[in-house]
Simulated assay, not measured.
Amino acid sequence: MKTEITAAAANKKTLDDLAVGLCALTVVGVSATAATPFWPTAWGQAPSIGVVVLAAGLAVFIALHSLYWWRSLDEAAREAHKWAWWWGGNLGFVAGGAAVVLAAVAGVDLLPARVPHTEAALIALGVVAAFAAQAVGYGLAWCAWWIARR
């Protein structure tokens, strides 16, 4: 029992340290305004170095936070998440993909009128639609898993 309490305290300290690091990266991100060097002109206007640092730091923070969060879960919660992601995420992806294809075949315009209808916008729409469908499927499957085991 004492080992679990010690591990939980160490885990919380690590997450607190990560949060402080993210706060420091936020300060750097908003204060560094110089353009990113070596940015290809074909990609458009270069973002500031601060934005790049902040985005990279946020990605590392999310990855590490997810790792520590996953380690803190018990076996039942891990199984619920794995099952929900496999079944809900996959079935949501299939259903969402089918809905987008059917909408495209039917000629439904899925982009708002103010958004330019470019290839990049359509690709972004596809990515967002796929993620949203997976997230909805995951949420439904996660709830179903816990309801079935009540």
Score class of each variant (00 low, 15 high):
57 G>A: 06
124 A>V: 10
43 W>R: 11
9 A>E: 10
71 R>Y: 06
12 K>V: 11
13 K>V: 10
129 A>S: 15
76 A>V: 14
102 L>P: 00
60 V>G: 00
126 G>V: 03
52 V>R: 09
60 V>Y: 03
59 A>L: 15
149 R>Y: 09
142 W>A: 12
15 L>T: 09
106 A>L: 15
150 R>H: 07
70 W>Q: 07
27 V>I: 15
56 A>E: 04
78 R>S: 11
83 W>L: 01
5 I>R: 15
45 Q>T: 15
20 V>L: 11
97 G>W: 06
56 A>Y: 11
147 I>T: 12
43 W>N: 11
15 L>A: 10
27 V>E: 00
143 C>E: 07
40 P>A: 07
89 G>V: 05
148 A>Y: 08
53 V>K: 03
86 W>D: 04
116 P>N: 04
32 A>E: 01
44 G>S: 07
144 A>I: 05
115 V>N: 05
77 A>I: 06
74 D>C: 12
120 A>K: 10
142 W>M: 01
108 V>G: 00
92 G>D: 00
126 G>E: 00
54 L>K: 05
65 H>M: 02
35 A>R: 13
88 G>E: 01
75 E>R: 13
62 I>D: 00
50 G>M: 05
30 V>Y: 14
76 A>D: 09
50 G>S: 10
112 P>L: 02
20 V>H: 02
123 I>R: 12
76 A>T: 13
81 H>D: 02
27 V>M: 07
13 K>C: 04
104 A>P: 01
51 V>R: 05
94 V>N: 01
82 K>D: 02
79 E>K: 13
58 L>R: 06
70 W>F: 14
46 A>D: 00
25 L>A: 12
141 A>W: 03
47 P>F: 04
44 G>I: 08
40 P>S: 06
20 V>C: 01
80 A>L: 04
92 G>M: 01
72 S>T: 07
123 I>H: 07
55 A>Q: 06
113 A>M: 07
23 C>Y: 08
18 L>E: 02
138 Y>G: 00
119 E>A: 14
48 S>Y: 04
4 E>A: 14
106 A>T: 11
131 F>R: 05
110 L>N: 10
123 I>K: 11
105 V>L: 01
33 T>I: 09
138 Y>T: 01
137 G>M: 02
18 L>F: 14
75 E>Y: 04
80 A>S: 13
43 W>V: 03
83 W>Y: 14
75 E>D: 10
36 T>R: 02
95 A>F: 13
146 W>I: 09
11 N>P: 03
71 R>G: 15
34 A>S: 14
74 D>H: 11
84 A>L: 06
44 G>A: 07
57 G>T: 08
5 I>W: 05
114 R>I: 08
122 L>W: 12
95 A>C: 09
143 C>Y: 13
3 T>N: 12
107 G>M: 01
116 P>F: 04
85 W>V: 10
79 E>A: 07
74 D>A: 09
93 F>E: 00
28 V>E: 00
114 R>Q: 14
74 D>L: 05
40 P>T: 07
19 A>D: 03
66 S>L: 13
145 W>Q: 12
31 S>K: 08
17 D>H: 08
47 P>Q: 02
103 A>Q: 14
75 E>Q: 13
118 T>F: 08
81 H>P: 01
